[in-house]
Amino acid sequence: MGPAGRSVTANLPASPRREADGRWSAILPNRWALLLVAPLLAVLFGFVVYPLVKLTIDSLTTGNGIGNYEAVFQSAAGRRALITTVLASMLVSALAVTLGGLLAWHIRICRHRAVRAVLWLAVLAPFWMGTVVKNYAIVILLSAEGPLDKLLELLGLAPVSLLYTSTAVAIGMVYTMVPYAAFSLYGVFLGIDESLLDAARGLGASRARAITSVMLPLAMPGIVASGALVFAISLGFYVTPVLLGGAQAPFMASFIQDYIFTFFDYPIASAASVILLAVALLTLGLALALVGRGRLQRAVA
C-alpha cells in the first residue's frame, strides 16, 4: 500500500483554468443570472406581458374607448355570454375538483394494481386524445340517436339530445378539466401522510369524519389552488363551445371570435377579452394571496 500511495502523491499541476475576474463567488453573480434569464424574459415580455398590455390599451383607445365595454355589457348577447361563461366555469371547477379529487384520492389509497392502472388510464386518456379529438368524441357521443341516447333507451329513459346546448359545452369542459384537477390533486394527496387518517380513526372518528377533519384541512390549500386554475382556464375554452355549443352558444370565446372575424370589430372583441382576463387574473390573484406562490405553481398539472 505504501509505495503505491507514494507514487500517487507526486505533485500534479494545479488547475490550468483561469478566470478573468479575480473575485470568485460560489453564488451565481446577478449579472450572469440576468443574462441566462434574458431569453425567457424576452418571450414573457414580448409575447405575454406586451400583448396583454396592448390589448388593454387598445380596448380603451380604439373604437369607442370606454364605450367598447358599455357595448359588451349592454348587448344582450354580451351579457348572456359573460354570465354563461362565468357560471359554467364555476360549475366546471366545482365538479372538476370534486370528481378529480375523488379520483385522485382513490388512486392514492387503492392497493390493487389493476384498479390503479384503470384509474390512471382514465386520467391520462383525455390528455392523450388532445383538444380537438376529445371534443369530436363527445360530439359523437351526444349526437341525436348517438351512443348516449341509445344507452338511455336501453335503460327505458327518454333521449336527451344535448348536443349544441350549454349543457353539452359544460360536459365537454368537465371532461377536459377532471383529469387536470385529478393530476394536480394527486400531487397534493401524495404529500399527506396516510397514517394521520388511521390515527384519527384510531381515536374513534368515522371515516367521513376523519376525512373531513384531517385530510380536507390539510389538502385545502391545494384544492383552492387547483380550483382557481381550473376556473381561469375554463373561462377561455374555445374549441368546446365551438364544437359542442354550435353557432348560437352563448360563450365568450364564440362572442369574441364573432366580433373579430364576422363583424371585424376588434375594439369590442378586445374589451370582451379584457373582461375575461380580468376575471381570471382576479381569481388567480386571490388564490395567490390565499395559498401562496408555491402551491399555485405546483397545482399547474
Binding site: A14, R23, W24
Partner: peptide, 9 residues
C-alpha cells in the same frame, strides 16, 4: 480567499 474552488488545489 478570492479564487474559485477549481484554482485552490
Amino acid at each position: 480567499s478570492r479564487l474559485s474552488p477549481a484554482r485552490r488545489g
